[in-house]
Amino acid sequence: MKKKSRTTSVFLIVFFVIVTAITLLPLALLAVSSLRPGSDLMRYGLNFNIDWATASLNEYRMLFSGANNYFIWYRNSLLITVVQVALALFLSACVGYGFAMYEFRGKNLSFACVLLVMMVPTEVILLPLYRLITRMHLINNMWGIILPYLVVPMLVFFFRQYLSGIPKDFLDAARVDGCTEYGIFFRIMIPLMKPSFAAMGIYQGMSSWNNFLWPMIVTNSITKITLPVGLQSLLSPYGNNYDILIAGSCFAIIPILILFAAFQRYFIEGMTAGGVKG
């Protein structure tokens, strides 16, 4: 019996070592290639053949030299992510709280609307939304990217779920003590929701930072685009931008990897929040 479980154990570990190696291979390929000159990649293709004698951080030096728009894109992405996370967290928490703690007319209908937005892929309304943003004169403006997604249904759903575990007597007790409706929210509920803010912040942060399609549609000026859109624009058939493309792709993931290593639990919680059962 014991022997059998040992064989299983060895088999499982070997299996996962292989799968993990294959999974990490593309990123390793990217990391190694970022040390090679871009002209090399254009001529020979992306592979692991690297001459360590000529390997250098030149690509990164070029990236940081300021002779390109990379850090303008980086800054745009960072700003949009921070603003969007802050607003979406706060507003979605308000909405989720409203749904979780109160009974009011039209509650079921409005919550059905939340579910409707959640299940319709944003790609469906790409065109009319773009026309609307154009008419609001928000093309090439970060608010054009942020405004339609101010309240995120996924977050509303999650916060409602999270708060529904808190007994409503809690509210009545606070009311008796003279706390206003908004006072309850700001002074009692927000502190209680802190753990869920971390996971949801990461969920929203990842989707804002990595968002590609909508920012690509809303922005077209070279200084207004976000990092993913900018990186995509470097992918020209002539390969003349490969220096920045590869090193830039690496540098787009590195901060996230560091954050992931530090806050793993919240990352996994946040990015799989959809699976939380009601």
Binding site: T8, P26, P228, L235, L245, S249, L257, I268, M271
Partner: peptide
């Protein structure tokens, strides 16, 4: 019988952190 579960779990999660653009480039 599996050892180091959370280690493998975290490593296998890493691709989800990349954007579709970086994945597409590679």
């Amino acid at each position: 019988s599996m050892k180091a579960k959370s280690f493998f779990r975290s490593l296998l999660f890493i691709p989800a952190l990349t954007s579709v653009v970086v994945a597409g480039v590679v």
